[in-house]
């Protein structure tokens, strides 16, 4: 007998939705704050391009596409994984991880997807709208191949962010009180929001190197956007796909080891 993960996932979706419904005010406030944030970002872009015609080769329309992509990646991640990663240290500290560990199903799966944050999904159509609008402005035709590659790279981007955040979060088994998940997320999102090229020309490219090869958040958002509105770089595309697979694999290993160290806070 095997656990049927599809059915479990559907139940997670349903239960999260029921929960969301009971807190209607919470839903509205969250969606409103997400939309407010988008408006601020749009104004920010306008401000930048009032000062310069391009940012290291990115025109205003291309930049808009990057922003739309970034919004897609981050809202998908926030909807499915951020809350769950954030909750892990709390589960460890209180010992409630006990009840995840006794279930006859993959522990990492249960930890990663139990709660869906629906308000975050509000930014998916907004992101898609921004991307579509910028494509119209650019007036360039995109092929079906480009669109599928774009979709694949979005998935890879989300996977990279997930693997990094989850690995960091599960380390709370050793650190017990570990509330750094939201900080790490803030850094990742803040850094990945801008065109990767701007980091190449700072500090001899050291920061760029670190953000591409060590803490690889820079390819997230940037690469999918590149494929659509700028150049297609096969090596970078191959690189991001490999990084996504390797990091997700590593997260499962770290999770396995961490859980064997679990001490379970007293009842």
């Amino acid at each position: 007998m095997r656990a049927e993960y599809g059915k479990i996932l559907v139940r997670f979706f349903k239960n999260s939705l029921i929960r969301e419904m009971t807190f209607r005010g919470h839903f509205i406030v969250n969606v409103a704050s997400e939309i407010g944030w988008v408006a601020m970002m749009l104004i920010f872009i306008k401000v930048i391009f009032a000062n310069t015609p391009d940012v290291r080769g990115w025109t205003e329309s291309q930049y808009l596409f990057l922003m739309g992509t970034h919004m897609l990646v981050t809202s998908i991640f926030e909807a499915f994984f951020f809350g769950n990663c954030w909750r892990i240290s709390e589960l460890v500290r209180t010992g409630h991880l006990d009840f995840v560990l006794v279930r006859p199903a993959n522990t990492q799966f249960l930890l990663s997807l139990e709660r869906i944050n629906y308000p975050a999904l509000a930014n998916v159509p907004v992101g898609l709208g921004l991307c579509g609008y910028s494509l119209l402005e650019i007036g360039q035709a995109v092929s079906a191949g480009q669109v599928s590659l774009f979709a694949l790279l979005i998935v890879a981007s989300v996977a990279i962010l997930y693997a990094l955040l989850f690995t960091f979060a599960i380390m709370s088994v050793w650190l017990i009180r570990q509330t750094g998940v939201d900080h790490l997320w803030f850094y990742a999102v803040s850094l990945a929001r801008y065109p990767a090229e701007i980091y190449r020309h700072f500090a001899g490219g050291t920061l760029w190197f670190v953000l591409v090869f060590v803490f690889p958040v820079l390819m997230v958002s940037n690469l999918p956007a590149n494929v659509m509105v700028r150049a297609f770089e096969p090596t970078m595309v191959a690189y991001i796909l490999v990084v996504a697979v390797v990091l997700v694999y590593l997260s499962t290993r770290v999770c396995h080891i961490a859980l064997s160290w679990y001490r379970s806070a007293s009842s």
């Binding site: 007998m1 656990a3 049927e4 479990i8 559907v10 139940r11 997670f12 349903k14 006859p104």
Partner: peptide, 11 residues
């Protein structure tokens, strides 16, 4: 609702 989740987890 928690029971229904258990139903899926324990098949």
């Amino acid at each position: 609702e928690s029971f229904r989740l258990h139903k899926e987890i324990y098949s």
